[in-house]
């Protein structure tokens, strides 16, 4: 959508603006009628959950009464929503602006974007697939194109690695073994690559671009080596995590949330130390955050869904910039 001085009604994009509004209304109504409480949490936060691969925006609060303090724009509302769950909120959802720095701008990314995040108490990641399917059904009033229509295809990461590149990940748990496979496929991994880097090189070169586009597909059970707050599956190298692709676009991801406070604490330590080495902005963390995961913290599953990408697909737009009012790239040109 161009940053235009024309009157809105005269642009062909006006139809998309109306569709965007209608889709967001339907999302809201779906969660409200299914027992979720809508919440609004801050987008400026003094601490974040450390994620070594995400660059964040930083700003300074300054006041003659209160002094100065660094704040960060949230890359997702997770940090606050998990606190609400600890306080007994029950199942909650939120549609909020989130921010990520240092990503490319254009087709799939805008530094400021709209995220839908919801947490379901007493659920795991597999329950959340059904919930997401039901949400999708509610968005299209029965007139659903095949590429959007549930049930979603479901494949484990283990399966797609076997199917697309003949790699048995269970037999490639060390860096040397997975590196050998990458080299066999013609890739050139770096000496400094981690297991996760090599995994991603293979996945992004040969699997992600080839995923089916005629049906939504969920890839589930991601490797443990990819650090995140998804629960580990005992006795396996996997975590209870999935990613949803629609027409080849990554739309949503989900975890059965890790609620073991020792594991959360370890995650914070590992990711914070990685961030300290690689990030431009090293956001503060709450050293006591793990303490919210006490014995009463409920089992739950969280899903984050990119609303702009969803609307891009539903309006047949080719870029998220087509469904965002005043996209970033247009403002950069000003």
């Amino acid at each position: 959508m161009k940053y235009t001085k024309n009157k809105l009604e005269q642009t062909e994009n006006f139809e998309i603006i109306r569709k965007r509004s209608a889709i967001i209304t339907k999302i809201r109504s779906y969660f409200q009628t299914n027992g979720y409480l809508e919440v609004e949490t801050p987008i400026l936060s003094p601490e974040l959950i450390p994620e070594s691969t995400i660059e964040v925006f930083e700003t300074t609060f300054s006041s003659e009464f209160h002094g100065e303090r660094q704040f960060y724009l949230i890359p997702s509302p997770e940090v606050f929503m998990k606190r609400l769950i600890a306080q007994g909120s029950g199942s909650i959802f939120q549609i909020t602006k989130s921010f990520r720095n240092n990503e490319q701008i254009g087709k799939d990314h805008n530094p400021e974007f709209t995220m839908l995040e919801w947490y379901t108490i007493g659920s795991d990641y597999m329950d959340s697939i059904k919930r997401t399917e039901a949400l999708f059904e509610s968005l299209t009033n029965g007139n659903t194109p095949e590429w959007f229509r549930p049930p979603f295809l479901q494949k484990s990461i283990e399966e797609v690695f076997k199917e697309y590149v003949s790699i048995d990940l269970l037999k490639c748990q060390t860096k040397t073994l997975i590196r050998n496979e990458a080299v066999r496929l013609g890739l050139s991994p770096n000496k400094t690559d981690s297991w996760e880097d090599i995994f991603n090189r293979i996945f992004l070169s040969f699997i992600e671009p080839e995923l089916p586009k005629g049906k939504p597909i969920v890839l589930y059970n991601y490797p443990r080596q990819i650090q995140c707050l998804a629960k580990e599956i005992k006795g396996t190298p996997w975590r209870e995590r999935w990613e949803l692709y629609v027409k080849g676009n990554e739309i949503a991801n989900c975890y059965t949330e890790e609620i073991d406070r020792r594991k959360v604490k370890t995650f914070f330590e590992i990711e914070y130390s990685k961030k300290a080495v690689s990030a431009r902005v090293i956001s503060d963390i709450d050293n006591k955050y793990y303490q919210i995961f006490d014995n009463n913290y409920p089992e739950c599953s969280g899903v984050a869904l990119g609303v702009d990408r969803l609307i891009m697909l539903l309006t047949r737009s080719t870029s998220i910039e087509g469904v965002i009012l005043f996209p970033f790239s247009a403002m950069m040109e000003e």
Binding site: T53, N102, E103, N200, F203, L204, P209, Y222, I226, N253
Partner: peptide, 13 residues
Amino acid sequence: EFVNPGKGSAFVR
């Protein structure tokens, strides 16, 4: 094409 896999560092395809 730039790609950021979920929970991964930035790649260029």
